[in-house]
């Protein structure tokens, strides 16, 4: 993609947002993550790809403790991730997450979905929380749906609500776990556009996705995982045109027809 270099205007600083070192994880006897090492700097956009079952989702889910790792260390925004519940909540407040299946709360309106966490977790007055929610709903271009229930929206709209809901907590890092995989094809673009816009605003992002166009356009680095290991980390240009590893080549040959 020729336009790719035009997008990457936001500066990547030297501050470290997330540092994963020597992380291992097992499900029972099954070794899902093997010696994962990854440093994400503030403002950096990382796209994580790899075949299904390679541990991509599990890795980012370890960062906000939706999954527990058994060995190694994870430091998020200077806070080491331990069993201390207070610290886990602290980290979750600052790390937004967007899921494959949106995980909106169906019994609350779109606006309530967005104001819930600011009001209860950040102790923000309701009025202020609503103003912020409307601001972000406008940014994802669905302010007119604020009073509807999630079930009344299309998949693409729901995912954009989910993004707005995360942004309402003013997170320092945003994680996306295959945000477009559950969407009908015609709705993928509206969600990706929202993510590109977010990237342009300088958000630190970790995206697990199969959208290679998005990776080329936005990513500072592409991480390729296979069988629980990080196999290759490279800039998108290098990654797509000159993959180093056999497994990367095989994967790329399978997804880029």
């Amino acid at each position: 993609m020729a336009a790719s270099s035009l997008i990457k205007t936001t500066p990547v600083t030297n501050d470290i947002a997330v540092e994963i070192s020597g992380m291992h994880k097992w499900y029972g006897e099954f070794h899902v993550l093997r010696d994962v090492n990854l440093t994400v700097r503030r403002g950096e956009k990382i796209v994580i790809c790899g075949p299904s079952g390679s541990g991509k989702s599990t890795m980012i889910r370890c960062i906000n403790r939706l999954e527990e790792h058994q060995k190694g260390s994870i430091v998020v925004d200077g806070i080491p991730l331990t069993n201390d519940l207070k610290r886990i909540d602290e980290i979750r407040r600052d790390v937004g997450m967007v899921f494959q299946h949106f995980n909106l709360f169906p019994h609350l309106t779109v606006l309530e979905n967005c104001t819930l966490a600011p009001i209860w977790v950040r102790k923000m007055p309701q009025k202020q929380a609503e103003e912020i929610a409307m601001h972000y709903l406008s940014r994802v271009k669905i302010p007119d749906q604020a009073l509807k229930y999630p079930g009344q929206l299309s998949g693409g709209q729901q995912q954009r609500v989910a993004i707005a809901r995360s942004l309402c907590m003013s997170p320092k890092i945003m994680m996306f776990d295959e945000p477009t995989s559950a969407l009908d094809p015609e709705m993928v673009k509206e969600v990706l556009d929202t993510m590109v816009q977010l990237a342009q605003d300088g958000m630190t992002m970790l995206c697990v996705t199969h959208e290679m166009g998005f990776a080329r356009q936005v990513a500072d680095r592409v991480v390729f995982m296979d069988r629980g290991e990080i196999v290759e980390v490279n800039t998108p240009n290098e990654f797509f045109s000159n993959p180093q590893h056999e497994r990367t080549k095989l994967f790329l040959s399978q997804i880029l027809h």
């Binding site: 906000n64 939706l66 909540d89 602290e90 979750r92 407040r93 790390v95 937004g96 997450m97 899921f99 299946h101 949106f102 995980n103 909106l104 709360f105 169906p106 019994h107 819930l116 966490a117 209860w120 977790v121 809901r165 995360s166 907590m169």
Partner: peptide, 27 residues
Amino acid sequence: GQFEGAMALGLSYWQMMRLIILPQALT
């Protein structure tokens, strides 16, 4: 996903149960 959605927003266990899980489960 409802548990994970609530946890990822930083809600505590009791907040998650009271605001997200129980209203739906009891319904």
